[in-house]
Simulated assay, not measured.
Amino acid sequence: MPRNPKIRRTGATTAAERVAAAYRCSHCHSTTGGTWRDRHGIQHLAVAHDDGCPVLTGALPDAPDALRAAVTAGCSAILVAWPPKGGAA
Rank of each mutant, 00 (worst) to 15 (best):
H49S: 00
D38E: 06
A70C: 09
A16S: 12
C53I: 07
V80G: 03
P83F: 02
T31Q: 07
Y23V: 08
V19C: 10
G41F: 03
G74V: 03
A69Q: 05
G86I: 08
G11H: 01
T14A: 02
P2V: 10
I7D: 07
L45F: 04
L79S: 15
M1H: 09
G41N: 03
T72D: 15
W82Y: 09
T10C: 04
V47Q: 04
P54E: 01
T35K: 02
P83V: 04
V80I: 14
H27D: 06
L67F: 02
R18F: 05
A70Q: 03
R39Y: 00
E17Y: 02
L67V: 15
G34E: 14
G33I: 01
G74Q: 04
I78L: 15
R39C: 00
A48Q: 11
C53F: 07
H44A: 09
E17A: 08
C25Q: 04
P5R: 12
A15M: 09
V19P: 12
L79F: 13
G87I: 08
T10E: 15
I7N: 04
A12C: 07
R8K: 09
P64W: 09
A89L: 11
G41A: 04
P84F: 00
T10V: 09
N4W: 07
W36S: 09
A88M: 07
H29A: 14
R9P: 06
K85T: 12
A73E: 10
M1D: 05
T32H: 01
R39P: 00
A70K: 07
T72G: 05
T72H: 07
A66N: 06
C75T: 14
L56Y: 02
I42V: 15
R8T: 00
T13M: 00
V71D: 12
C53K: 01
P84R: 13
A48C: 02
A20G: 14
E17L: 02
A63Y: 11
M1C: 01
T72C: 13
R39T: 07
G33E: 03
H40T: 03
A15Q: 06
A89R: 13
D38F: 05
R39A: 13
A63I: 11
A59V: 10
R37S: 06
A73M: 08
T57S: 14
H29M: 06
A20F: 09
A77G: 10
V71G: 08
A12I: 05
T57E: 06
P64K: 10
R3S: 11
T35C: 15
G34W: 02
T57K: 06
G11M: 02
G52D: 04
G58I: 07
G58M: 09
T32F: 01
D62T: 11
L60E: 01
A16C: 05
C28R: 01
T57W: 03
T72R: 10
A69G: 06
T14P: 04
P84G: 11
T31M: 00
S76H: 13
Q43N: 06
A21Y: 07
H40G: 11
E17R: 00
R9D: 13
P83W: 03
R24Y: 05
T32G: 00
C75M: 14
V19W: 08
A21K: 04
H49K: 00
L56A: 15
C25K: 01
I7C: 06
R9H: 04
T35F: 02
G41I: 01
L45T: 03
K6F: 14
R9E: 12
G74W: 02
